[in-house]
């Protein structure tokens, strides 16, 4: 039974199925019921995306509004998270900074997943000198410690958003291409691949229809872990002072700046870090739940 035949059976049922709205709600409800933690993660991610999209509507002040008479205030009803050394409202700045994390986090993971799949699968599938050359290039690439590498790139090419996204993508893509390659190696040695080849399928068809679908769970697990990890990496970079440029805030830089004042004013260190932790936690929870839902092998079992 080929995949095309299965599609023919499914198509008519889809057409006469329930209304579009019901078709969307039912799986959504099932997701919330079966994956409460994942739904919670989804909620955090939705809030994050809304904050990142509409900071000027939600935040009480702009990120660069300052009031020198209200410097280093503790949290109060006027300033929920207190103010920083320039008298800027930390609550508003944290809301604006979500944009930095969302844009860099999601774009870099997409770049990484595309690179990792292409390199990992083709390297495992074709093997031989192709594999050797690619693996050696990746060896060179990955021999540089990630954080140090990005710091270098930023020092050379500047701290533009595009540069950081591409570098993080290349970095995390190289890492997961290894994992995907090792999974694809196992898939390649399975007898069903041999069977498909015996039916006369070409390399491209085998890769697209048989190898990639079988490593997709690994790709998704990897990407799901990475959204959070990339957001963390971006904040580490900003913490060290190599992130996207001021005045637009980022959580990592807020923490970096907090170091000078934090012993007297711990709120400066507390809230931006909590924002990073909560965001990354939400992304990871959602990623976990998506994996459990999407991975056919995990779905089938007990």
């Amino acid at each position: 039974m080929s995949a095309a035949a299965a599609g023919d059976v499914l198509a008519p049922r889809e057409l006469q199925g329930p209304s579009t709205a019901a078709r969307f709600y039912r799986p959504a409800l099932r997701f919330i019921k079966k994956q409460p933690l994942g739904a919670f993660g989804l909620l955090i991610v939705i809030i994050l995306v809304v904050l990142a999209a509409l900071p000027s509507v939600i935040a009480p002040q702009r990120y660069d509004d300052f009031d020198v008479t209200a410097r280093l205030q503790a949290p109060s009803m006027d300033y929920f998270f207190g103010t920083d050394q320039l008298g800027r409202d930390n609550f508003s700045r944290i809301i604006y900074a979500s944009r930095t994390s969302v844009i860099i986090g999601f774009s870099a993971v997409l770049v990484a997943a595309a690179i990792a799949t292409a390199v990992g699968v083709s390297s495992a599938y074709f093997g031989g000198w192709f594999d050797t050359v690619f693996q050696r290039l990746i060896d060179v690439w990955m021999s540089f410690p990630g954080l140090i590498f990005i710091v270098f790139v930023v020092a050379i090419f500047g701290n533009g958003r595009g540069t950081i996204i591409l570098t993080l993508g290349l970095l995390y893509g190289a890492g997961s291409s290894r994992v995907i390659r090792s999974a694809a190696l196992t898939v390649r040695s399975m007898s069903y691949i041999e069977a498909v080849r015996a039916t006369g399928a070409g390399d491209l068809r085998i890769i697209l229809r048989h190898v990639i679908p079988n490593v997709t769970p690994i790709i998704i697990v990897n990407a799901s872990v990475q959204v959070g990890a990339v957001i963390l990496a971006e904040s580490s970079l900003s913490f060290l002072g190599f992130g996207t440029p001021p005045p637009f805030p980022s959580w990592g830089r807020m923490l970096g700046e907090a170091q000078t004042y934090m012993t007297q004013h711990p709120h400066l260190a507390l809230f931006p870090g909590a924002a990073i932790a909560l965001t990354v936690y939400g992304c990871n929870m959602l990623g976990d739940a998506l994996r459990d839902t999407l991975d056919p092998r995990l779905r089938r079992g007990a």
């Binding site: 872990v225 959070g228 990890a229 963390l232 904040s235 580490s236 913490f239 990592g252 923490l255 907090a258 170091q259 934090m262 260190a269 507390l270 931006p272 870090g273 990073i276 932790a277 909560l278 990354v280 936690y281 990871n284």
Partner: peptide
């Protein structure tokens, strides 16, 4: 996985 190590360090 979610808690930044440098934040924990600061705290």
């Amino acid at each position: 996985l979610s808690v930044p190590s440098f934040w924990l360090g600061l705290l």
